[in-house]
Design a protein around this nucleic acid. Structure first.
Lengths: 149, 149
DNA sequence: TTGCTCCTCACGTCACGTGAGGTGGC
DNA sequence: TTGCTCCTCACGTCACGTGAGGTGGC
């Protein structure tokens, strides 16, 4: 709820962890691996400070890691490739190179979609089985409650 | 492909791992934790032998662990509770007790369904976002390929 | 006898959790 | 000054991976 007095919109690591649904330890670990930029310049030993864009980025990392089921190393490669494409695109380049960039981005999206769809299909199958068990159990409960024959 | 000569339908740990899509190390670890019965009696140092029902049980454990996202300790509690209910049911008991057993089973199924549905909904949301990105990228690709104005 | 898979330690790894002891901003 | 959160080691944990050295069945 409270931030630093002189830095209006900035959050400390505990607040960020709360908002994203993770822990300070995890945030420091991701920074150590190079998944998060090092939270601005920081005199060593000083508190880390984050803004809203840092919160968004972290939330997306946590989400992708959980839903795609990839390692942190794979996740880092994934977001770095995406970042490199965006940077090169914004920098301005030839139409031929832009076509390549779009192609690589489409490949990346296709790989992620394959992972997500496979998991969703398996989850739906398990969900159907659980629903079937639920119906059978409710049937048994009705039998036990009143065999009103 | 080959089993032991004198024990017709039995499989060794490597074959089981292949069929289930896991590793011998994981199977031994699950046995150590008590998730798998100790693969029959075994003179110490002898090879572990499994039948089809062991394969099915292991496959289900691996599947539930991956899809529910629970720890092995939680998974053990889950399947042990289920086993205890089935055992007590088969043993034969009062109608009142049977009602309780069905109620507990329904609670367990409801908890698993909640986990599965939450994950499925999050996956569907990510899938929609990825599809939207895919459409935008395909749009850009068409623009780059031929601005046939 | 030669390979093959298996066995049991036991140390390594990944993604953090959890104190230990200390510093910094309201 | 008192709490609070923060800091940096650094060891612990969970779910295995990975050799090291050895035994057992075709």
């Amino acid at each position: 709820v409270s931030a630093t007095t002189e830095n209006p919109g900035l959050l400390r690591i505990g607040e960020v962890a709360l908002r994203v649904g993770t822990t300070p330890r995890t945030i420091r670990y991701y920074e150590e691996l190079g998944l998060l930029s090092a939270a601005g310049e920081r005199s060593s030993g000083a508190h880390r400070l984050y803004d809203e864009s840092d919160v968004d980025r972290l939330r997306e990392l946590v989400r992708l890691k959980g839903l795609l089921g990839v390692s942190l190393e794979e996740l880092k490669a994934l977001v770095e490739a995406e970042g490199a494409r965006r940077a090169e695109w914004a920098e301005g380049t030839s139409v031929a190179r832009r076509r390549e960039i779009v192609g690589e981005a489409l490949d990346g999206v296709a790989r992620q979609l394959a992972l997500v769809r496979a998991r969703r299909i398996e989850l739906e199958s398990l969900e159907q089985e659980l629903c079937a068990r639920q119906r059978r159990l409710r049937g048994r409960r009705r039998e036990l409650d009143g065999p009103a024959d």
